[in-house]
């Protein structure tokens, strides 16, 4: 008899615990990305480190090493610069993030292969939501997850565009794409 009562009480308590979230406001499922991302595909820098080590242990011949080093150094540089491309879009201090490094080592579209240039272009226009992180859609105006307005970057000078529906860049005055 006691067991029945205890069981019933526990079951009701569990039921309340389980059903409670349903009384919250209906919220969309969204990516709460506060932890570290689960898994990174291997970065070119890690690959380069491994290549160095494999050479040091004699596993890579000099020819293979040179070929791999060239390929992965390129990828690593692209990785670095695309990282900066991201930071242009995400940075809150645009005047700092602009071009000193590109002026230094001219990052001209012609000097890389078309595919990589396309990746870089894509990364440059990709938007990121302050709350939910980068958006997967090309060129969104609002966050597809929480609906917040997404800050953009001026294609000409790289300044952050933070007013919704801006038609012109507040920094350099050039016309913005829709």
């Amino acid at each position: 008899m006691i067991a029945l009562v205890v069981g019933a009480v526990l079951a009701v308590a569990a039921l309340i615990y389980v059903l409670l979230p349903l009384f919250d406001a209906v919220t969309p499922l969204r990516a709460r990305l506060t932890g570290t991302p689960a898994a990174a595909p291997e970065s070119a820098i890690d690959a380069l480190r491994e290549i160095e080590f494999d050479r040091a242990t004699g596993k890579l011949s000099d020819d293979d090493y040179a070929a791999l080093k060239a390929t992965y150094t390129r990828s690593a540089l692209v990785e670095l610069r695309s990282r900066r491309g991201d930071s242009v879009a995400e940075s809150t201090a645009p005047e700092q993030a602009v071009t000193p490094s590109t002026a230094d080592a001219p990052f001209v579209a012609g000097s890389v292969d078309p595919a990589e240039a396309a990746i870089l272009r894509y990364r440059a226009i990709r938007r990121s939501c302050d709350v939910c992180g980068p958006r997967p859609e090309p060129d969104p105006a609002f966050c597809s997850s929480c609906g917040k307005y997404l800050k953009g970057a001026c294609a000409t000078c790289g300044a952050v565009i933070d007013a919704p529906a801006s038609r012109f860049c507040a920094n350099c005055g050039s016309t913005l794409a829709a």
Partner: peptide, 16 residues
């Protein structure tokens, strides 16, 4: 050092 591993790009958040 000025370099950051590029994580799966859609998963990376500026704050991190």
């Amino acid at each position: 050092g000025g370099y950051v591993v590029v994580m799966q790009s859609s998963e990376r958040q500026a704050a991190d």
